[in-house]
């Protein structure tokens, strides 16, 4: 089991998506036994005790479908050529959503805590080591110190990446937003007063010629409308907004969305 367990640990640590297929029941003559396995990652077999080539191909194909659905399931299959029936359990291990918190100030501290509780992989970015450090963010998966906009440029951003811009100044938020506004991120939220946000978007339209549909994707002012007062409450309203976007909820955002 050595290589299987090592692969499973690696998948967890790297936060990648994978499917483990296990033979649960097998009819005679199919050259497979209950307990035979196959671990699939990025559409490729990482390790397998299912030896039958044809069945392995069918399993890889089925695994892709299960991963898309993000649901573990017991599936009846037939061993090609042999005709023997098998029951295979597909255990889906989806890639966890990722939260990038830009700005390590007083809202970031509770935000990172809350995000870890609801199972996000969390990265914290700031250009001040005094703020972006292990003492303040013991739960964070990653703490990056340096030029925030430049670091954002280097990070992989997918539709399961959620980005929160809460730096110490609107100038920095805007610089960072410029860097990511065309990215495929699942969510971009930016803190700030309505007046400052309006001015920022105006500059984007006029100077950067950024289309209205792109600008409208940004959640600013950030958070759900729950009349927050403290940094902790603001963090909660930001995370609630992210969950709303991720799960397709209907609660009203401060940005009117």
């Amino acid at each position: 089991m050595d290589s299987l367990v090592d692969e499973l640990i690696k998948i967890r640590e790297q936060g990648s998506a994978a499917v483990m297929a296990t033979v649960i029941e097998a009819a005679e003559g199919g050259r497979v036994r209950p307990g035979d396995k196959c671990l699939i990652r990025d559409g490729r077999v990482q390790t397998a005790t299912i030896r039958h080539e044809g069945l392995l191909r069918a399993v890889v194909q089925e695994a892709e479908a299960r991963l898309k659905e993000e649901k573990s399931k017991l599936v009846p299959l037939e061993v090609p050529d042999a005709g023997a029936k098998v029951e295979i359990f597909f255990e889906v291990m989806p890639s966890p959503p990722r939260l990038i918190v830009v700005g390590a100030g007083h809202i970031a501290v509770p935000l990172v805590k809350f995000a870890k509780i609801v199972d996000f992989r969390v990265s914290v970015l700031d250009d001040r080591m005094l703020f972006a450090n292990r003492e303040r963010f013991p739960e964070a998966d990653e703490i990056l110190v340096g030029d925030m906009a430049a670091m954002l440029k280097g990070l992989p951003i997918t539709s399961s990446t959620y980005i929160v811009l809460i730096t110490r100044g609107h100038k920095y938020d805007e610089l960072c937003l410029r860097e990511i506004i065309h990215s495929p991120a699942g969510y971009i939220g930016m803190i700030g007063s309505r007046r400052r946000i309006k001015a920022c978007f105006q500059r984007f339209r006029e100077e950067e010629k950024i289309g209205e549909e792109i600008i409208q994707k940004v959640y600013a002012p950030i958070g759900l409308d729950i009349n927050t007062e403290t940094p902790e409450e603001i963090a909660l309203s930001i995370l609630a907004e992210i969950i709303k976007v991720r799960r397709g909820g209907k609660a009203r955002s401060l940005s009117g969305k």
């Binding site: 089991m1 050595d2 290589s3 299987l4 367990v5 296990t22 649960i24 209950p34 307990g35 396995k37 390790t47 005790t49 359990f89």
Partner: peptide, 11 residues
């Protein structure tokens, strides 16, 4: 499904 795992087992 209850599956036995041990080090030397293939996988």
């Amino acid at each position: 499904f209850i599956d036995p795992w041990w080090k030397e087992k293939e996988g």
